[in-house]
Amino acid sequence: MKKLSKLYVSLVLLFLYVPIFVMIVFSFNTTKSRSVLSGFTLEWYAKLFENELILKSLGNTIIIAVCASIISTLLGTLAAIGISRMGKFGKATVLGINNIPIINPEIVTGVSLMLLFVFFKARMSMEFGFTTLLIAHITFDVPYVVLNVMPKFRQMTPHIYEAAQDLGCGPFKSFIKVVLPEIMPGIISGFLMAFTFSLDDFVISYFTSGPTSQTLPITIYSMTRRKVSPEINALSTIIFVVVVIVLVVKNIMERRSLNVKKYADDDSAEIIE
């Protein structure tokens, strides 16, 4: 039974990672063939960095991802603060609404945002471009930030906000000095999540970007429609590596804050005994 389950897990992992592995291998292939390996080269990586279209959309992607994740981290954190102070019913309702954009198919979000922007375009001479793309990204990023920050309020040491006030801090100062450090891990993981989602979003960006603000996924998509160049393999490899690094960093940070919490819990368990 144990062997069987191990086999099953390996199959699943194989299924998930073989395509990526193949892509990485072929990004170093000397010919354009997608079936025959003929030698090792970094030519495609070099070419990639000479391709202005790709570099420009890479720039766009990063600018959008940075702006969208910073703004949505701010908005999402403020929202989480408000929600954590709500009553039971209000909290459940708002969190339910918060979850809808996450479950909602991206295509629906994408099309509906496009329609909204078209509506405003007709009335206020608004062009599809950086602004529309940014608004769209913030829209789908905020719920993830809220979801990451909310649990931190629940795990927070009780009464520390009041304790800070008791020791002479006004409400705002109390928040900055004692609440913010407590929810920081949630804010950071929310930020990283928003950043990665922005980085690789295709569907929503496809509907909401303009000709001047194409992001990397859209550029790759249009490149594959003409001919699949191994440059794309190289590019995808780089993106994959970056995402893996971000995820590993995030996990290590979460593990660390969890460990600290765990020690504290063990301790209090002893006391109760």
Partner: peptide
């Protein structure tokens, strides 16, 4: 408000600042 009163509190579960 609490921060203007000359009293201090020892809270039920200590409420120490963990950071």
């Amino acid at each position: 408000p609490p921060y203007r009163r000359n009293v201090n509190t020892v809270f039920q579960k200590y409420a120490l600042f963990p950071h």
